[in-house]
Design a binder for these strands. Sequence first.
RNA 1: GCCGCUUUAGCUCAGUUGGUAGAGCAAAGGACUGAAAAUCCUUGUGUCCUCAGUUCAAUUCUGAGAGGCGGCA
Length: 322
Amino acid sequence: MKSTSIHPTQSNAFAEIIFLFGPTGVGKTELLLDLDPKKFSVINADSIQVYRYLDIGSAKASLEVRHSIPHHLIDIKDPWEQFSVGEFIAYADQAVASIHQEGKIPVISGGTAYYFKHFLYGLSEAPPSDEGVRLAVAQRIEQNGRAWAYEYLKQIDPISAQRIHPMDMYRVSRALEVYEKSKRPLSSFSLPDTPRNGMHPLVIGLMRESDQLRTRLALRIKQMFDQGLEDEIRSLLRMGAQMSWPGLQGIGYREFFQAMEHGEWSRSIIADQIERNSRLYAKRQMTFFKSFAQVQWMNADEKGEILTAIQWYLHPDCMSLQ
RNA sequence: GCCGCUUUAGCUCAGUUGGUAGAGCAAAGGACUGAAAAUCCUUGUGUCCUCAGUUCAAUUCUGAGAGGCGGCA
C-alpha cells in the first residue's frame, strides 16, 4: 500500500479515508480546525448541512472554518429539494476522488450515521425513492389505514414484514413503494455487507459524557438564537418556505414551523423544544454509531490522541520504528 | 384574616364508590434495505404533602397542620 506507483492518484481502492462521526454537538467542527489543510480536506456527511440558507440552525461550520480547511458537500442543494443517501454516495465518491487527486486525505465528517453506513457498504439494487410513487402509496395508506398497509406488505413481502414493525409506516411505505416500482419485494434485493472497493477507512467515533453533551447542546442552542436563528427563519419565510420542504425537517427549523401552525412564536418554548429534540437525536445517533464495526471511540477533548490515531493510520511503518 | 379549590412518577395530570396506582412528556435502552436531524419499538415502587382519628384495611373517609392557586376583606 505504500507503493510509489506512477499513478498514485488513481489507486482509489486502497487509498486512505478517514471517517469522523459523533452525536450532534460533540465537537466535530472544532476538531477539524486542528487538521493540516495542506494534507486533509473535509467531506460533509450531514443531511441538513447540504442545504443552502440553512446555516445557523444546522450548525454548519462557519465560513472562516471552511476557509481554513476546504469542505465538500455543503450548500449543494436548495432547501426545497430532496436529498438522499444515494446522492450522498455519488457526490462523496466524486469528492473523495478529487481530494485524492490533489494528494490529500479525505475526512468524511458528520452526524448522519445512515450516510456513513451506506458509503462504506453501498446500497442494495432496489430502485431509488420516487416521490410520485411514494405520495400515491401514502394516499392509499391514508384511505385504507395502517393495518391494511401492513397486511398488504405481509402478502407481497413477508420477509420485510417480519423485519419492519407494523407501526413503522415510514418503512412499510418504502417497501410498498419498491414493490410498486419494481414488482419485486424489497427483501429480494440483498444488502451488501462488505466494504465497497476494499475500502478500509479509519473510523473515529467522538464521544462525551452525557451530562457534558447536554450542557454543550444547551449552550449551542442559546448561541444559535444569539447569532440570529430567528432572522434566518424569517428570511426563509420570505423565500416562501413551507413546513414540507425537505431541508426544514431539520431540528432547529421544524420547531418554528410547528409553532407557527399553532399560531404562536414563543422563543423560550421553541428553544426548549429544539434542545429536547437535539438530545433525543444525539441519543439515536449514538445508538446507531455503536452498532458500527471497528470504531475507535475517543473522547472529543482528547485531540492529541485523535491526531495520533490518524498518524498511526497514515504511517503505520513510521510509527512502529519508534 | 375569612371562604373556596388544590397537593399522586423528574414535569403536566388521571384514578382508586376504602383492598398501597396509571397516561402523556422526560429519562434509560434498542432497531435502522436509496426521505434518516426521518420513522419506529421496549422499560413505570412512587414516603399518592404531614400528623392524628374511624376501619380488618386509608393515597381514598373525618379532623388538624403545612405548601400552592383563586376570591372576599
